[in-house]
Simulated assay, not measured.
Amino acid sequence: MNKLKVMLLLGAMLGLSGCATGFNRLPYDAWYLGLGAPDFMEVWIETADAVDIHDRVFRRAMSGVAAINTPKSLKGDPRGWPERPGSGAGKHVRGADLPRLIYVRWQSLVEPQTYEAYIPIPENTQQAMIKGEKTYCQFDGKWITGYRNVVTVGLAPGGIARVWVMGPCLKPFDVARVQGIVVKLGPDSGRSGGRYALPLEPSSKAYIEKYGVPYGSW
């Protein structure tokens, strides 16, 4: 058996047995992958995949509608990013160790356009995710040891992906701004005949018609 086959076999065995053998050494059960978009800038996530530091792949860790605010009054402001972004719509990536790479393929419904982005998670971010910090939690009025166990990805028109890690009671840690690329096959890898997943909400459509898309603000 050649070296490559041995490595593939070992990787498969580790991927199957990681959770049961304590392969992951996180100070919490799982980290959360959440995705959001600026006000009115609606997004459909085709897939968000995660690769952990042991090169195990967790496909479709998240898919569907990103967290977004679409007020009927049109008083939202999609320009830029909030100082304290929310955790986003997502799921816990169970069985994974610290993330090494996040891959996202999404439909920017306001343009419309389909993008993909590869988001490397640097070592200093990984270390920030397992560093416990004493912090005051306003939710219950208690001092706790908190962890930044949430990875949030903000997706904006033009293929922009902005990434933070945060904890329920800890300030966000800015990770990266990544420029995605256009998926030439279009939505759903060409299987939908160019049809996008969802129509725009009436308030999003009205906002775009009145103010346009604030490219360059993200």
Score class of each variant (00 low, 15 high):
N2R: 11
K3T: 15
K3P: 09
L9E: 14
G11W: 15
A12Q: 08
A12I: 09
A12E: 10
M13Y: 12
L14A: 13
L16K: 10
L16F: 14
C19I: 12
A20N: 11
T21E: 10
G22N: 06
G22F: 05
F23H: 09
F23M: 10
F23D: 06
N24K: 11
R25V: 08
R25K: 14
D29L: 08
A30S: 15
W31R: 01
W31H: 03
Y32E: 04
L33W: 08
G34N: 07
L35Y: 01
L35H: 01
G36T: 10
P38D: 00
D39G: 04
E42C: 05
E42N: 07
V43P: 07
W44K: 07
W44G: 10
I45S: 01
E46L: 10
E46H: 15
T47E: 10
D49M: 04
D49P: 07
D49W: 08
A50E: 07
V51K: 10
V51H: 03
V51L: 11
D52L: 02
I53V: 14
D55H: 13
R56P: 04
R56L: 14
R56V: 08
V57W: 11
F58P: 03
R60C: 09
R60Q: 11
A61H: 03
M62G: 07
S63Y: 14
S63W: 12
V65F: 10
N69E: 11
N69T: 12
P71Q: 03
P71T: 03
P71A: 09
S73R: 08
K75W: 08
G76D: 02
G76V: 02
R79F: 03
R79W: 06
R79C: 08
P82N: 04
E83V: 09
P85I: 02
G86Y: 06
G86L: 03
S87D: 13
G88W: 05
G88S: 07
A89E: 14
G90D: 04
K91V: 06
